[in-house]
């Protein structure tokens, strides 16, 4: 039983395309795409959104993401009128990044609040943010923890693209370990599919995976296995 994700857009094509994209990384998550007017025009239809909100819940609640302002208002009204207030979470997050992050968090079995938080935390990517740790203190901060690290050359066709990134994140889900992936000047949390994708590591590139915490060894072994299997491509 996983948290469901409802995507409310002004455009049916946008909602359905986003559901397709997010669904690639979250095959077991119920993704409900709703957008456009009954006649096919752009807009948000209250009855369609209400139906989606009412139908989507698989028993673990649902998060609702929306694109422009009136989609939020329609989603709010729908959630108020048909949703169980304890099981519907409206999330103000970047529509695409938020939906992908929420879907992956739901795939990993996250609870409603966790899935919502994942969507909110979906940031524009490491290019905009820069490395997570910088400055003179960064090296020391990493060294003081027990760090296990491995360096790999990516041999699979697409590198750390969407599907491999999602597989990597899923391989370490549930482990008590802080896993980070470094490529070039960027270093990101391996728990974030979008951050991994944002590294832009392709075929032939060398990445360093480091792990700290009680399950660091297991985490590193799983990542090693995955990379050596070329992400099952």
């Amino acid at each position: 039983m996983r948290v469901a994700v409802v995507l409310v857009s002004h455009s049916r094509a946008l909602a359905e395309g986003l559901a397709e994209l997010a669904g690639q990384m979250a095959p077991d998550v119920r993704l409900e795409a709703v957008g456009g007017l009954p006649g096919g025009g752009l807009g948000t239809d209250f009855d369609a959104v209400s139906t989606a909100v009412a139908d989507a819940d698989q028993g673990a609640g649902l998060v609702v993401l929306y694109d422009l302002g009136s989609a939020r208002m329609t989603a709010e009204l729908a959630a108020e009128s048909v949703g169980d207030p304890d099981r519907v979470l409206l999330v103000d997050a970047p529509f695409v990044e938020g939906a992908v992050a929420a879907a992956v968090a739901a795939q990993n079995g996250g609870e409603l609040a966790t899935v919502g938080a994942a969507a909110v935390a979906a940031a524009p990517g490491p290019e905009a943010r820069g490395p997570a740790l910088t400055g003179p203190a960064a090296e020391g901060a990493v060294e003081t923890a027990e760090v296990r690290a491995e360096t790999f050359v990516l041999r699979n066709e697409v590198g750390l693209h969407a599907r491999p990134a999602a597989l990597l994140t899923r391989s370490i889900a549930g482990l008590d370990a802080d896993v980070r992936v470094r490529f070039g000047d960027g270093e990101v949390d391996a728990a974030s599919v979008l951050a991994l994708m944002g590294l832009g590591a392709g075929r032939g590139d060398t990445v360093t995976v480091s792990a700290t915490g009680p399950d660091a060894e297991t985490a590193l072994r799983r990542v090693t296995d995955l990379v050596e299997r070329n992400f099952d491509e």
Binding site: F46, S70, M73, L77
Partner: peptide
């Protein structure tokens, strides 16, 4: 109005 207006005006007038 909520069911027929759409856009922002439907939810706003409805609310």
């Amino acid at each position: 109005l909520i069911s027929t207006v759409g856009g922002a005006a439907g939810p706003l007038y409805g609310t």
